[in-house]
Structures are given as structure tokens and as C-alpha cells.
Design a protein around this nucleic acid. Sequence first.
DNA 1: AATGAATGAGGTTTCATTCAT
DNA 2: TATGAATGAAACCTCATTCAT
Lengths: 206, 206, 206, 206
Amino acid sequence: MGKLESNKKKKEDALYNTAFELFTTKGTNKTTISDIVEKAGVAKGTFYLYFKDKYDIRNKLASSKTQDLFFVAYLAVRQNQITGFPAQLHFMIDHILNALKNDSQLLIFVSKNLSWNVFQAALEQKMPDRDVRFYDKYLQLIEEGHQAYEHPDLLLFSVIELASSTCYNCILYQQPVPLEEYMPYLHRAIDGILSSYKKDSSVCSS
Amino acid sequence: MGKLESNKKKKEDALYNTAFELFTTKGTNKTTISDIVEKAGVAKGTFYLYFKDKYDIRNKLASSKTQDLFFVAYLAVRQNQITGFPAQLHFMIDHILNALKNDSQLLIFVSKNLSWNVFQAALEQKMPDRDVRFYDKYLQLIEEGHQAYEHPDLLLFSVIELASSTCYNCILYQQPVPLEEYMPYLHRAIDGILSSYKKDSSVCSS
Amino acid sequence: MGKLESNKKKKEDALYNTAFELFTTKGTNKTTISDIVEKAGVAKGTFYLYFKDKYDIRNKLASSKTQDLFFVAYLAVRQNQITGFPAQLHFMIDHILNALKNDSQLLIFVSKNLSWNVFQAALEQKMPDRDVRFYDKYLQLIEEGHQAYEHPDLLLFSVIELASSTCYNCILYQQPVPLEEYMPYLHRAIDGILSSYKKDSSVCSS
Amino acid sequence: MGKLESNKKKKEDALYNTAFELFTTKGTNKTTISDIVEKAGVAKGTFYLYFKDKYDIRNKLASSKTQDLFFVAYLAVRQNQITGFPAQLHFMIDHILNALKNDSQLLIFVSKNLSWNVFQAALEQKMPDRDVRFYDKYLQLIEEGHQAYEHPDLLLFSVIELASSTCYNCILYQQPVPLEEYMPYLHRAIDGILSSYKKDSSVCSS
DNA sequence: AATGAATGAGGTTTCATTCAT
DNA sequence: TATGAATGAAACCTCATTCAT
């Protein structure tokens, strides 16, 4: 990578990092583009070389932060050699929720900005610097198991959405209960969803 | 009520109604005070006679819309002569979700703006025009039953939050499943929460 | 007129006058809205209470300045008791060209901005503060004469356009000849146009 | 011409062509240098190797387009073996107006940008690729005739300016009349101008 | 209580120009 | 020559808020 190119990357990264910090600190509404560029140490025009407007960088950040959460969870599954798709899914959920529990700014940012569109983009785009799509890895996990599922995309979304929306209050406000107390109920619900997405394999019951 | 006083009320109501319509239509962010007063047909200065700023009317609206939902649900319980607190609670949840299902603008508005603070205010303030507090009615329902509960406030919040957050996607995106399919799971979860808030009455287990 | 209303009018007028001065001095392109409001001594926002953007005030000015030229010429016809439509038209042309000759800034401004659309608007709108339409007065002049003309609107436009476009260089650059030398040729051309618009009145001559 | 040199020429030409297209399509004001270089497929910096700014290329284009019009008209005079200076001049005018009639974008561009300065430059500079000056050819035509004229430069300008300014509306708006109807009047006016520039050769009247 | 013209800080966005590569 | 990322001044425009009426 040439000097010029790496310098370019550095500017873009500075914008990403600064924007994320300000969005989580002051909120997206109260963060101005002037704030971002000033703190990032680049000129105002530079912002517009990389992003259309504030919401563009916001969406890209939400998407990338979501990707990160998922990919790191996936790597943990592999590193801990968890086997069997349901167990792997439960493990990833725990992993993600744990990460969010320890970073409530991230939780707020991701929750408030995770619309269905952004979420889909996050799963189906190639991860920057990694050349892998989380979604491919996820399908691979299912294939490695013995059980087939319908609509693996919807299955995944349902589980994640259920988990994140119910845990938002548990983590931030300890309401209705602290996260720890809620977890067992969550995992039971996840099992329920998993069953409902199972493909009728030959013989047996649902 | 004098003519002048009713005229005053009319202005305030016009502001409330118009603001709600614009907030749900264009979003709170993109709605300006100019938009509101213009559409409401009052002068700009008038807005500031009733509200501090945009977020003031937003919060008051969220609170009042939430109150309405709850109070109407409560009235329905009485009209249908439902007996027994758990049954009454389930009935109210169904009633509220049904209302939200048929008014997704309201769902979005209430969900995006229902912070814990606003929620509390909604329950503990006197309802305009009615001179009743929903929360008193709610406590009364519990007392009429035979079972005592700890933290009736948290119990209520937990149930509502669980319901609204999980149903947000069901209603708006039919994800992970349409509302109808999700309802049985929801009601089972509510039963679980109810149990966990039961006060140790004499005999039984925790 | 109330104090408030007259004050309002004063601001708008200040904007008009300042804008005209800057447009004619620096050119429309190089005049910014900041320039205008600063020189006019009003706040930036005030500009947008009265005008959409720079081109809005430019068009309104071009239109109003054109109206003025025409109306003053018309008044001169009446004051000098000129009779007969052709003579009246020639007189007005002379009057207008004379005015432009002595105010080349106005000549430049009007010429560069007098598009067909703006021109039409100028003639058919009521004059501010006067409650008269120049165009009505013009039609009245024709009716008072004995000769009918087809398309009096086009007739008027043709004459004016011919005069202003050919005289632009005469006045500004003395090219191809100074205005004085050109005037006889111009009046001859105007007579030609007049003939070509005459309505065939029963019998007679061309 | 070397490959490198021809490549250089290609860039400059691309800039010229693109700029002309954009100027006539969107107007000079709304065309940015970014627009030009992007559409021309060259880098931004490259623009500044050839032109000082937007108005530089605008003027050069106006000049060169004017040159083209005149030179092509001159060639047509030669090809059609028109003899006698007045006839040659009328022929060239017709030729130019005809060209403009069929390319109203060009008409607008040339009219709006043909200031006296640019015009002079157009006539007195060597034509690119041709190594001839139109103005020399024009003087040659006069010399070949029997009649001498004062200020042949002003004569030429006067005729052209008269023609282009009066015909602008005829062509673009068919106002006051379509070009065809106006042409006879124009040619009579040109004859008048010609007379007024004649040098007193011995005997006759002015 | 009601008005709405005026404000002007503060945001967004553009774009001509430079300069290291 | 050619590039195009970076710049930042300078334009545009919005809108919450005030205040004289």
C-alpha cells in the first residue's frame, strides 16, 4: 500500500472513530459534522469525500459495529470448539450480549440504529479487511449440523432481535430484571424459535 | 368553562394533535416548530406559551398517548367484567397490542419515545379530563385479587416492555413471525414474570 | 398603516434597493446574499422571509424595474398629450431608451435579465403601490386610436425587444453607431412592425 | 506529432468539448470544474494545466466557436464564388444565421458570451489548426472589391451585432416574427450600415 | 393570551485551488 | 505532464427563540 493510499485510509478511519465516539457520547442528533471533522483533525470537505451526510456515516458505523459483534462471536465459537448448531447459536448470543453488557454506549448505538435494512447490509456485505461474509459462515455452521432450517436468514434475525430488544432494558436499567436473571428465559425462547424453523426431516414430529 | 378558556384549550389541543401527526408522519427530528404552528393554525409565539420546546411536547404526547392506551385497556377490562388479576393483565396486554397493531404510526411513536422516565410519568400523573390515575386503578385490580405482588410498578413495566419490544418487529415487519403466531409465546412469558413477582403468601414455594 | 407594517415594508425595500445596487455594481453572480443583508442592515434570516433565493429577488427586481420604465413612459405620454397610437408608441420607446441611456447600470441589469417570462410577468401584474396594470393602459391606448391590431401583446414585445437589443451596444459601446445615429433606423423598423400587425379594417390601405 | 503530444492534445480537446457541452446544457453558472473534468475523464489538476479558471475556458470557447462560424462562412463565400464585397457580406450573414438557427444551444452560448473583447480576440487570433486569421481574409475581400470602407473592424462588428441581437429572439422564441420574415428587414438595415461606412471615393455622395 | 416579524447562531454543503506523489 | 486527495473559505439555508405590538 502506497503512502498516499495509507494516508487516505487513515483519514477515513479517523472520521469513523471520531464519529462513533461522538455519536455514543452526545447522541447522533447533537453531533454535528463540524464536531466530527474538528475532532478528527481533517477538513470539512474531506468528510464529504467519504460520506454523503451524517446519516450515511451513522448507518455505515451501525452496520460495521454490528458486523464486528457477530464476527467476533463467530470466531469465539470456533476457538472454543463448540459443536452442534443450537449450542453454537446460544454461545454466540451469550457472547454478543456479554459484549454489549460491558459497553452500554455500544448497546445504545447499535439498538437505536439497527433497522432491518442496516442489519441485512451488515450480514451480507463483505467485512472490511477480512474478505469474509458473516452470513456465509453462519450458513456453514448450519450445514455442518444435522438439522436443516427454513429461512435461515429470518431465523437469525428473529433470535437476534428478540435478544437485543428484550435485553436493552435489562442491561441499561436492570428492568424488568438484571440480565443474569433474564438469560434462562431468553434461551428457552430461543429454543422455541429454533424448533419453529426446523425443516421437516423425513419422518418425525416438529 | 368560559369562552376564552375553551378557546385557549382549543389552541393547545390543536398543537398536540398537529404535533402528533407530524411526529408520526415525518419523524420527530424532521418536524420543526414552524411546521407544527403553521399546520395548527396558531402563531409561533403561542407554542411557547404551552411548551418549552419540541421535546417537551414530544414527551407530553408520548406520555399522554401511553396513558390513553392503558386507560382504554383498563376500561375494557371493566366493561367485559374480566375477573382475576392475571386474566385482567393478559386481557389488557391483548387490548393494547391490538390497538398498536392497527395503528403502526402510534406504535413507532410510542416505542421510540417511551423511555423509563416518560413511562413512569404516564402512569403516575392524573389523566387530563378524567381526574383518575391509571396506576391507582391498576393497584386496585391487584387488591381485588387474592394474590399479592412485590413491586407492582416494576411488574407492570416488565410486562409492558417485554410485550412492546418483542412485538415491535412482529407488527411492523412481520419478523420473526406475525403477531398472531407470537402471541402464545408472549403470554407464556408473561405468566413467568407474574410468578416471579408473587409475594410469598403463607404456604407455597417462591 | 401600523408601525409594525411600515417597518416590515421598510425591510423589504431595503433588501430590494441594496440588492439592485449590488447586482448592478458587482453583477448578480458575484453578489452573495450575505452581501445584500449586510449592506441592507437586516439579518440573514430576514432575506428568506421575503425571497426564496438570489434569483427570486433578481427576477422580481427585473420585473419591477421593467414595469417602472414602462409605466413612467406611459405617464409621459399622457402628460404630453400625445395622440394617435403610433405616435404614442414611438414616444414611449424614445422615453424608455432615453432613460436607459442615462443609466447604463439599469440597462445592463434589465437587458441581461429580461427573459420572455419575466417580461410577461412585468406587464401583466399589478404594479405595487399603484393598483394599475401597464398592459391595461397599453390596450386602452390602442382602443382610443382608430386602427385595430392583431396580437397587441406580441406587437408590444416585438417593438421593445427590437429596440432594447439593438440599442444595448449603441448605448454601452457606441457600436455600431451612437444611439442618436441609430434612432431614425429604429423608428423606421418600428413602423414596419406596426404595419405588419395591423388588422385588415374593411376597405383600405396597407 | 509524437504520441505523447497527441495525447496531450486529446486531453485539452476533451476539456473543450465537455465544457462546451455543459455550458450549453446547464449554463455556465451551474457548471463546475468538477463537472467538466469528471465528464472529460481527466484529473482535476489537469484542468489547471490548460486553463486559468472556468471563465478562461468559457472565453476561449466563445472565441473559438465564433471564429469557426466566421471562417466556415468565409469558406462558403469562396466555394460559391460569390463576388463583390456587399454580396459576400450578405452571404456570410445568411450563412451564420442559418448555422445558429439550427443549433440554438450554440446561439445562446455565443450570444450570452460574446462581449466586445472576446469578439476582437476571435477575429484577430490565428485559428487553431489553420494558421489563418479570419480578419485577414475579411480585409482581403474588401480589397478585392472596388469600394473602400472606413473602420472595417467596426463595420464588421456592427453588422454582426445587429444581426445576432435582433435574431436571438426570432430564432429562440419566434418573436417578434420567425427568422424568415425578419431577414429582408435585416438585409436592408445591413445595406444602410454599409453605406454609412463607405469611404468617400472621389466623386459621389456619402 | 396571542401574534408573527425579526433575529443570527449554527448547521450543511460546495467547489476552486493546491500540492505531494 | 498528470493525478486526485485534501483543503477550507465561503456560500447557502434553517429554525429555535425573542419581543414589540
